[in-house]
Write a protein that binds this DNA or RNA. Structure first.
Lengths: 330, 330
DNA sequence: AATTATTATGATATTGATTTCATATCGTGA
DNA sequence: TCACGATATGAAATCAATATCATAATAATT
């Protein structure tokens, strides 16, 4: 059933029906006629047709590297909370860390499918930049910084610095590092730089033999810990770029009777749900993931409203959470 | 820029452009003209306009009770994998366990917004049923059973039964239970029934004093464990309806020097990532969440293709994973 | 060679809504 | 009483695409 059939059924004009759904001038008796007919027929206006004429889809495209990650789903929850409030729905694309899917979904969002885009990318290439430039809708980037766009990001360098410093302050002399791919500027590069700054500031040197790069999984953390500890290397503190990596690494330590924190202190980033129930509760850095989602969504809404060309970068701070894994007295 | 402006720019007819994007008959030289013009202009056809005429949105509505849950995000990952393959995108609605949002998103999906719907509901009311009946697109339900619809669900009763039985077989005589809201048929009621069947089969009785209902969170599990163990009650095995609840409960046991498994065995459901890195690795039941998403999506695709009125229920089986938390010898 | 199939074409109708426009009615202040 | 703004109305134009249709040009089959 379409609007004109429905209008006939209700005994009013097509315009009246449209006005009913769009808060135009409409006499009370017509409203009643329409409401009665709505109950009889269950008619609903077509969103696609509405979108053609009014150019509003009430859809926001959200591009994610994966779905089953605690940090990402917290961001998404924040986004969904704010946008849901304003009557927007999310068109979610899971790129599964696949570069091509990321590109093709940006293409997709150029087809008048969405009113705005929120991008949680990990890597930016030239192709990303050129596609983003072609976008005709507002774009907000969460988790990374890109000049010319509204961004919400975390102080990754600071978070890594503080956590490493916390361990070095307790007397550690041989720091080790398990990080992420440095192409990922935030979680990979910046957290590495924070680690290095703390090490250098403590008058120590960053030894590449004590540094590993892992994937974002527990099993990868386990594997890299094996490489770090199975040689004659003897790190006395270990900074991991994510809690998942840290949890995997600690599993290796446990299986090999390396005591935490007595033999090695361990620190992570992310404040994952499981941190406090690990066999040694894990010290970590809380990053405001949900807040990032909330603020990113608000930024998008305001950019969509003003159409302002001024872009700003909102960097959220962090909080150190100390638990037993770094509870050592010098 | 719209199709007719673009057609003029490319020097071909509007029909030719439409055929180019829809694999109709088209001569090679026109294809080339169009491709050249595409590069020059960056034209993209409007999806909304296309949807009005062709009644295909290439969008699947997915209704979830929350985003930041490991089990749910695994289901979603499975869904996204299969549907992405077929060129569908997900219109995600996070109901945040809010009954009204669930209803309103079903309403939303009646407005020709999506080609199909996947519903991960926990509770079914009459209003749910009547709205589902009004749906003009295919619907698949994941995680619960509802007559008249294609469903993919887990053997929740069996999973709970087997895990409880495992503990009782090791000599436990005083079983305890921390479950979920029984309005949630699958995770609440069925897992409770499985627990009860195992208890009765072992010749024991289900004592309500040893049963608690928790929310789906670690902190709620902690709280309910406190209530269970702080009285003079002395359970020697504890079945929890989810791993999150179990992890919270174990945290309480640890803080109160109640040994696992020596004093109490603990079993959960869900095979969460963190299970094996808990201070006592947790025995659990693996439910095929991702498979549920994959199979649900496939069901939806085939229902959309045939438009068949035959509905089937696919019940996925489970696998017991034994770890230290139940590793006790009688 | 005649007859079908297949490929190819572009004008026009159609989809289901909103927007515009010309016009009518009503209450209120000058 | 007149003029003006606010309220109200429905026909028709518009949005950006696809579907239909009538028709032409090849290719394949008898």
């Amino acid at each position: 059933m379409n609007i004109s059939e429905f209008a006939k059924e209700a005994g009013v004009s097509v315009s009246a029906v449209s006005r009913y759904f769009n808060n135009g001038y409409l006499a009370e008796d017509k409203k009643e006629k329409i409401e009665a007919a709505l109950k009889r027929t269950g008619y609903m206006p077509s969103y696609s047709a509405r979108a053609v004429r009014s150019k509003v889809t009430k859809l926001i495209g959200v591009i994610l590297p994966k779905l089953s990650s605690e940090s990402i789903s917290r961001v998404t929850e924040g986004i969904s909370e704010v946008l849901g409030e304003e009557g927007f729905e999310l068109l979610l694309v899971n790129t599964a860390n696949d570069y091509n899917r990321e590109i093709s979904s940006l293409e997709l969002f150029r087809q008048n499918r969405v009113d705005g885009v929120i991008l949680l990318a990990s890597v930016f290439t030239d192709l990303h930049r050129s596609l983003l430039a072609k976008m005709r809708v507002s774009v907000v980037i969460i988790g990374q910084q890109l000049k010319g766009y509204n961004c919400v990001c975390h102080n990754d360098e600071g978070a890594a610095y503080s956590m490493t410093k916390l361990m070095l302050n307790k007397g550690a002399k041989q720091p080790a590092f398990i990080g992420a791919n440095p192409d990922d500027k935030a979680a990979g590069l910046d957290r590495r730089l924070g680690f290095e700054r703390a090490v250098k500031e403590a008058g120590l040197t960053v030894d590449p033999k004590y540094c590993e790069i892992a994937k974002f999984s527990m099993s990868s953390g386990y594997e890299k810990a094996r490489r770090l500890f199975s040689n004659r290397l003897k790190p006395d503190c270990l900074f991991c770029a994510t809690d998942n990596i840290a949890a995997g690494a600690m599993q290796y330590l446990r299986e090999n009777n390396i005591r935490v924190p007595d033999d090695v202190m361990v620190g992570g980033v992310g404040d994952s749900r499981f941190d406090k129930v690990l066999y040694v509760p894990l010290s970590t850095v809380h990053l405001h993931y949900k807040t990032a989602g909330i603020e990113g969504a608000k930024m998008l809404l305001s950019e969509m409203k003003d159409g302002s060309e001024v872009h700003r970068i909102l960097q959220l701070e962090y909080e150190i959470i100390e638990r037993e894994s770094t509870d050592k007295h010098c």
